[in-house]
Design a protein around this nucleic acid. Structure first.
Length: 692
DNA sequence: GAGTTTGAAACT
DNA sequence: CAGTTTCAAACTC
């Protein structure tokens, strides 16, 4: 639709400029020299670029972003692929490239490059199975893009198409794919971020989008990269892609965002529907290869929902997004990594290594379990709850215990989070199920009519806070630290009864709490005050809390490491990382330790420094600008995203890519802070125009 | 696991 | 808008 038009221009711009610049830049050269992989990348990039960008305007890639991403992805992919193959074949690099390209094109649908096709065919012989398995499974419509489609425009898309029996199926597919795809996709993430940046109206949603996008993009690449199975991909794609909207879906990201914006419910619905099926499928599949996939599903189920999950989470998570996001990341080992890399301080190196490792081992194994188990596998709700709680939870996996509200009121966490109740829920007379979709939607509308922000994240992320600083706090709902502020009277804002505390944020002026002792910050007012108060007065309390939290985390880790239960159910591990590093996840999730990060602008800074720093030293409240600059992770900088941001109207907020690009050296330093970036970007662009 | 506490959500 | 009631999570034992 619109995409094609936009894409051409943007794609060219984004792809050509950035890459060329990067490649040409001495820094880039230096990097490339450092690692053979990099060199390959450069080569591959060029090739891929040409092939991809020009061979045929693939519908899927129509979006410029996509193309650029692809390229970047390819690099990564190549690496992974290369690993499988001997590096010696530099020529092979071309070969590799070819392989990759073909895949992409396949995805795109028809733009076959002859050479590439050949290569693809060859490869296909080798690895077709995995992908096929996915696609072939009757339940799962394979169009790689199905995921995207479902996510983006679930309602619009004819469910029947592509042979996908149902949304659930699609969802499952998505999840699976996500898992599989995860490997490559640092870049994918970037894509997602782009999308978010441009169009995400809400933080949460944006975040979701990210997740979704990532997953979708990952899939694509995965297909290619993953396996070495490109052929399969090709097969899948053509069949599915042509028939289905897989491609389009890809193209649409922006649109998807819009749709997402509107009602997280759809997705959630989808997601939640999944859970039940997922469980079954997962149970069946776990043992099989699909473990990864299953995990992905489960995770996604959890995650996605989570993402969508709690709006709060989304918002935080972009709260969901974050969590969701988080989950996703965690789910896909790579994604997680990538993400972490971008958002969190994870080292780019690590990412690379991981990618390589994953390529060898199949990325998902570790993550998958965790993901899968946590939600699906665990038997007892309580356990799950606890786990989730400890982990920081997966809001994605929210479980309610409603008895009278029918899960149609905000009392219900699931409903409040915009997700359907699932089996683990012990609710009675629950109407918050896909079956009662109409009722749910109607109720939701009703509630929204009463309070438009009812489903908005309660807690606003640091990013938001930043935004606040920069912009009018009142402007966006997210602007507030806590949407409404708490009204605690007995808990002193030191228990989860307090929404502020629960969200890992400090109380603000909006709060009407009495005897506020919120560790994250008292309601004195400005962030600075909060910080100071913390430092000065609350140090002890804070320390205690911190220690406590840390202890919990460690415990959870231990548990994870020592999977006492056969179920790796301990979701904690995967989540934990996420949680720890990313504050955004969900409102609840933010672990106290993190909240600095999550909290106000001050929090951002603290991330790197860690709580300790925050404590010990006063943390100068860095101007928002600084955060922004620092926030940019290397990956992002290198990735097209950076460019995008610059382009984006809101770019002002976003740290200019220049910073990152200009100061590659500083990037390392920034890594720690890097995570912030993504989050920030998300919230920053609430209602951007898709195009620009 | 049951009961209590708490504060948000819903209602008046 | 304030006060009250309802509700379910959070917490305690």
């Amino acid at each position: 639709m619109d995409k094609p038009q936009k894409n051409p221009t943007t794609s060219q711009i984004g792809t050509s400029t950035p890459k060329s610049k990067f490649e040409d830049s001495p820094v880039f050269n230096y990097i490339s020299n450092l690692s053979p992989i990099e060199s390959v990348k450069s080569i591959s990039t060029a090739q891929t670029f040409s092939s991809l960008s020009f061979t045929s305007p693939p519908p899927v890639f129509t979006s410029p972003h996509v193309n650029s991403h692809r390229e970047s992805r390819f690099f990564r992919c190549h690496n992974s692929i290369d690993r499988t193959k001997p590096l010696e074949d530099l020529n092979g690099s071309v070969y590799k490239e070819d392989v990759v390209v073909p895949v992409i094109e396949d995805l795109n649908k028809e733009a076959p490059l002859e050479d590439e096709d050949e290569t693809s065919v060859e490869t296909s012989s080798e690895l077709p199975q995995i992908l096929k398995s996915d696609s072939q499974t009757p339940d799962r419509s394979d169009s790689p893009c199905t995921d995207d489609v479902t996510l983006e425009a679930p309602s619009d898309i004819p469910r029947g198409e592509g042979g996908s029996s149902s949304e659930d199926v699609k969802m499952g597919m998505l999840n699976v794919r996500e898992v599989n795809d995860t490997p490559d996709c640092g870049r994918l993430i970037s894509n997602a971020t782009e999308l978010l940046v441009f169009r995400s109206p809400n933080d949460s949603e944006a975040f979701r989008c990210l997740v979704d996008k990532i997953s979708s993009s990952e899939r694509r690449f995965c297909a290619g990269v993953k396996s070495t199975k490109r052929p399969d991909i090709n097969k899948d794609v053509p069949a599915n892609g042509s028939s289905n909207e897989t491609e389009p879906s890809v193209v649409l990201p922006n649109e998807s965002v819009f749709s997402l914006n509107r009602g997280g419910m759809r997705r959630r619905c989808l997601d939640f529907e999944m859970p039940g099926k997922r469980k079954k499928e997962i149970a069946d599949d776990q043992q099989s290869m699909c473990d990864n996939k299953a995990a992905g599903e489960s995770s996604s189920g959890c995650v996605v929902p989570g993402i969508g999950l709690h709006l709060n989470a989304i918002a935080l998570s972009a709260r969901d997004s974050n969590i969701n996001v988080v989950h996703d990341y965690s789910i896909s080992g790579e994604i997680h990594k990538n993400f972490s890399g971008s958002t969190t301080p994870i080292h780019s190196q690590d990412i690379v290594q991981e990618t390589s490792d994953q390529a060898e081992n199949e990325p998902v194994e570790e993550v998958p379990r965790a993901l899968v188990f946590p939600e699906l596998n665990t038997g007892s709700l309580k356990k799950k709850k606890r786990v989730s709680e400890q982990a920081g939870e997966g809001e994605s996996c929210k479980r309610c215990n409603c008895k009278k509200s029918k899960c149609l009121k905000l009392y219900c966490e699931c409903f409040a989070a915009g997700v359907y109740c699932i089996e683990p829920c012990s609710c009675i007379d629950c109407f918050n199920k896909p079956v009662h979709e109409e009722t749910v939607l109607a109720t939701r509308k009703q509630i929204e009519s009463r309070n438009p922000l009812a489903f908005a994240p309660k807690v606003i992320r640091s990013a938001d806070s930043i935004m606040e600083a920069g912009d009018d706090a009142s402007k966006t709902p997210a602007s507030a630290r806590h949407k409404r502020g708490c009204n605690c009277k007995k808990s002193n804002c030191l228990k989860k009864y307090c929404e502020c505390y629960q969200g890992g944020v400090g109380c603000s002026i909006n709060c009407r709490c009495e005897g506020c002792k919120n560790v994250f910050g008292r309601k004195e007012g400005s962030l600075l005050v909060i910080m100071e108060s913390k430092q000065e007065e609350d140090q002890e309390t804070y320390e205690k809390r911190r220690t406590k939290i840390q202890h919990k985390i460690e415990v959870s880790r231990e548990v994870e490491q020592n999977p006492s239960s056969d179920q790796p159910s301990t979701p904690l591990p995967p989540y934990r990382h996420l949680v720890v590093h990313q504050p955004f996840l969900s409102k609840n999730r933010l672990p106290p330790t993190q909240f600095f990060i999550g909290m106000g602008s001050s929090s951002f800074r603290k991330q790197d420094s860690d709580l300790t720093q925050s404590h010990n030293g006063k943390k100068p409240v860095d101007p928002v600008t600084e955060d922004k600059t620092e926030i940019m992770p290397e990956i992002l900088l290198n990735s097209p995203i950076a460019n995008i941001k610059a382009i984006s109207p809101n770019s002002k907020r976003v740290s200019p890519p220049q910073l990152g690009s200009s100061e590659s050296g500083s990037n390392l330093r920034r890594r720690g802070n890097g995570r912030k970036l993504i989050l920030r970007s998300i919230p920053a662009f609430p209602s951007l125009n898709p195009n620009q």
